[in-house]
Design a protein around this nucleic acid. Structure first.
Length: 843
RNA sequence: GCCGGGAUGGCGGAACUGGUAUACGCACGGGACUUAAAAUCCCGGGCCCUUUAAGGGUGCGAGGGUCCGAAUCCCUCUCCCGGCACCA
């Protein structure tokens, strides 16, 4: 760590930073003005869960967002940059169970800590619009949202095998299970049969997929992840009559071209027909035992492709409807009830899983698609042939290419009514109930007479009782709160019970960006007029970890609201930016790993602007980056360098003596006199100034490559130092412009020091009231160095005017001494001139 | 296994639609200032060979190709990171 001698003169960030933070609040820099005629810009950061303290990794998100907001303010937009709190959730409740504070108390405390931290970073928000999801004025409307889905039939309760986290003592949505483990605590997830509330997101699968095309400014990888998660497959559902029974088994396949090669059918152990089908089997006991074992395999075992495929013959047969072949019916652990129909037609010759299974249990293998590169012999195959080919053993489809047959067979089946085209998705419905306390109560009551009833909207909110006993039981602690649970039915006035589960916090976060437009609204969740004016969000910024969860749920909820006529847009987020993580010692920062870098200490030592600068300079913001304390010092040095430069200029401006003997730096600068190139140097300085404006603006408008934007500004500062250092500069408009440009371009990144220097240079008012500078294309044109290559190798350079004709350039190049040396005795075959870049002489 | 993304000095990373590879910063070496240090300012640097100077060769994970010219385009391969993972 650095030693910081007290006597060293450094810029006074400790005075500057609070001063300007106060000033921005006073002038309401971040207060959105509803009556402004300026174009709107909704800049949204994913609202955080209020944990005890932020580290520099969290800071990256807010700093990036703050840079964007400040830049857009300078570009003349009416910027909306709100902030809120995703304040329900497990950690606060778990802390309470361990004997800590009540979740409400700890959450509100954490919010205060985080607000202080955000402020100390110089990150600005329109705090009048703050929304906190754990407060009744917010969750009232989360409950309202539930009721809307309920009314539309999009919220329903069903008994199902669900993911259960034994550590969190609650169910999880499919999206919250990562490789068979809980996304929060990494505990292995088990299966439980429970009655749970779901949102019918599967009804929106097609639209969630299709509308990804609208999202042009989303990272491709996020769209791909969502596409894969939705998992659309086109195929055919085929009915297989069970021999000696009225039952029909329907199988879904994407490879109907292989139907003639189906040699057996496999059912999932959970398939509803299993019981009926095996009731007369001699082997019934063993089959039931097998099913039981398969169902008890953990998710991780079931999900893993490497687990051994196991199955049992049911003793029954089904009829392949295309050829009348009687084929055996099996039950196997590798068939999933949740996907397709829970019954699969097996074609061992053309599916690797079926192939392995058939080999293991001695089932028939029939080739129906031949490899054009060499005839397939079922008995000799080492693995399934899954590619396209020529149809064989398939009656009148023989000889067709399989990719043609696939459609013809589907037509044929629809004609004969033995099958039909169908689309299936991997996406499952969203399980939203949680057996936990710290969430929005699900607004449902159960009446013995009237059944399941939604709480009337006028009775919202269903208040979350505060006086509860926290214990990890697997049931919501609300179960024991009698005055909460036991109520009268509003219909029959008889005794009724409230739903005791609360909602997944992802429901809270699926609509918060609408609440910001009218956070104090009491009569409705949001002001439709304002929301329609301000949405979609122009720029959304957050972590890649939400690529599927939050971002898909929000898209779903907005589409539901669109269908309800509550909003007039189909997608909530126009442009998405996902920033990378900050890594320390090779790992994500976390308390348990002990590698957390606290921003508070760094701000204390170097100031917020240094932390901001380094965080932005560390690398491209969408990529992960390794934190380096040394790098912070580099940022600190640079800001001091800017400070000294500007301070020096303040002295010029005032015509005060600037070569004071006491000040070694300036004495030194004055002492170095070289030949006077001033007119040329001044042009070069102006060129660099305008080139920097161009580069920085392009980085701001493009992919947010703030690291290169800052590099450009540093180059300009170096150029100014060179200019100032090589002569005794008289105050000039070009030098003034260069220094002012540095300060203005730096403003979105390091706002405190920029405001202060701007003021010290004699300007009034906030630097953010200026408009962003535009570059002068004329300033970029001047004499240029053309690189001269001989046969593609750099050998020399010539200086020419930027508007020289090719003829002139050719002349200049051929008369160059180095070129002459290399082309001696040879005449140039070809001379390639790349305008403003290089000349290649081919000999 | 499938689908993405990536590999550039000692390190983080630049390089516009193919056109001076290594900008900017960190670390390092040298110098100035200083009693000294810190801070600051200036200079230096891919690697190899040669050298008084200058110069030459080579170099963007590996190998090949297209082109006057390739980090960038094409083919083959290696490794790393992320997502999905028995989806029929």
């Amino acid at each position: 760590m650095v030693k910081m001698a007290q006597e060293v003169e450094v810029y006074p960030f400790k005075d500057i930073e609070p001063k300007w933070q106060r000033y921005w609040e006073e002038i309401g820099l971040f207060r959105m003005d509803p009556s402004s005629p300026k174009p709107k810009y909704y800049c949204l950061m994913m609202f955080p869960y209020p944990s005890s303290a932020l580290h520099v990794g969290h800071g990256r998100n807010y700093i990036i967002g703050d840079v964007v907001a400040r830049y857009k303010i300078m570009k003349g937009f009416n910027v909306l940059a709100p902030m809120g709190w995703d304040a329900f959730g497990l950690p606060a409740e778990n802390a309470a169970i361990k004997g800590g504070l009540h979740p409400k108390v700890s959450t509100l405390q954490n919010i205060n800590t985080m607000k202080r931290q955000l402020r100390s970073w110089g990150v600005g928000y329109d705090w009048d619009r703050e929304a906190t999801s754990c407060l009744p004025d917010y969750y009232k409307w989360t409950q309202w949202l539930f009721l809307q889905l309920y009314k539309k039939g999009l919220a329903y309760k069903k008994r199902a095998a669900v993911n259960w986290c034994p550590s969190c003592q609650t169910v999880l949505a499919n999206e919250q299970v990562i490789a068979g483990c809980c996304e929060r605590c990494d505990t292995q997830v088990t299966q439980k049969d429970l009655e749970q509330w779901f949102f019918k997101i599967t009804d929106y699968a097609e639209r969630l997929l299709d509308d990804l095309k609208i999202l042009k400014d989303w990272p491709e990888r996020v769209k791909i992840m969502q596409t894969n998660w939705i998992g659309r497959s086109e195929g055919v559902e085929i009915d297989f009559p069970v021999d000696g029974s009225d039952l029909k088994l329907t199988c879904f396949t994407t490879r109907v071209d292989t139907i003639y090669g189906a040699t057996y059918i496999v059912l999932a152990p959970e398939h509803p027909y299993v019981e009926e089908l095996i009731k007369d089997s001699e082997d019934r006991e063993n089959i039931l035992k097998f099913i039981d074992e398969a169902r008890n395999e953990s998710l991780i075992e079931r999900a893993s492709a490497t687990v051994e495929k196991k199955g049992m013959f049911t003793g029954r047969f089904v009829i392949n409807p295309v050829n009348g072949r009687r084929i055996p019916l099996w039950i196997a652990n590798y068939v999933l009830m949740e996907y397709g129909t829970g019954a699969v037609m097996a074609v061992p010759a053309h599916d690797q899983r079926d192939f392995e299974f058939a080999k293991k249990y001695g089932l028939d293998i029939v080739v129906v698609i031949d490899n054009p590169k060499g005839h397939l012999e079922a008995s000799k195959m080492q693995q399934a042939y899954i590619e396209e080919g020529i149809m064989i053993n398939s009656h009148h489809f023989d000889g067709l290419p399989s990719q043609v047959a696939i459609n013809k067979i589907a037509d044929f089946m629809e004609e004969k009514d033995i099958g039909r085209r169908a689309v299936h998705y991997k996406l499952r419905d969203w399980l939203i109930s949680r057996q936990r306390y710290w969430g929005a109560p699900i607004p449902i009551i159960y009446c013995k007479n009237c059944g399941t009833l939604p709480v009337p909207e006028e009775d919202l909110p269903v208040f979350l009782p505060e006086n509860v006993r926290f214990k990890p039981t697997g049931d919501s602690p609300l179960k024991d709160v009698k005055e909460f649970v036991n109520i009268r039915c509003y219909k029959c006035k008889g005794p009724a019970k409230r739903e005791i589960d609360t909602m997944d916090t992802f429901v809270d976060s699926s609509w918060y960006f609408l609440r910001y437009l009218s956070p104090k609204e009491e009569k409705r969740p949001f002001d439709t007029g304002l929301v329609n004016k301000w949405l979609p969000v122009d720029q959304y910024i957050g972590g890649i970890e939400h690529a599927i969860l939050h971002l898909m749920y929000s898209r779903f909820i907005v589409k539901v609201l669109f269908d309800l006529g509550c909003v007039n847009f189909k997608e909530p987020f126009e442009r998405l930016f996902t920033q990378g993580m900050i890594i320390k010692d090779g790992a994500k920062m976390s308390k348990s790993k002990g590698n957390v870098v606290s921003p508070d200490k760094l701000i204390e030592r170097f100031g917020a602007d240094t932390v901001r600068f380094y965080t932005l300079f560390i690398g491209p913001p969408e990529k992960d980056a390794e934190w380096s304390d040394r790098g912070v010092e580099g940022a600190w040095r640079f800001l001091n360098r800017v400070w000294r430069l500007a301070e020096q200029f303040v002295e010029y401006k005032d015509h005060r003596p600037h070569l004071g003997a006491e000040h070694p730096d300036i004495r030194h600068l004055g002492a170095r006199q070289t030949t006077d190139h001033r007119p040329k140097d001044i042009l070069r300085l102006r060129q660099k100034t305008h080139l920097t404006i161009k580069n920085v603006t392009e980085d701001m408008e493009g992919e947010f490559h703030f690291n290169t934007a800052l590099s450009s500004i540093m180059e300009l500062v170096n150029e100014i130092y060179d200019y100032v250092g090589s002569q005794l500069p008289a105050p000039s408009s070009q030098l003034k412009e260069a220094i002012e440009t540095v300060i203005i371009l730096l403003a979105p990144f390091v706002p405190h020091i920029s405001e202060e220097l701007w003021e010290r240079l004699g300007n009034k008012g906030s630097i953010f009231k200026l408009s962003w500078p535009e570059y002068d294309p004329q300033a970029l044109i001047q004499e240029i160095n053309l690189v001269v290559q001989i046969n593609g190798k750099v050998r020399s350079k010539v200086e020419v005017d930027s508007d020289s004709s090719d003829e002139k350039i050719r002349e200049a190049v051929l008369s160059d001494a180095v070129v002459k040396k290399w082309t001696e005795n040879k005449s140039p075959k070809n001379i390639i001139i790349v305008p403003k870049r290089l000349v290649n002489v081919v000999v």
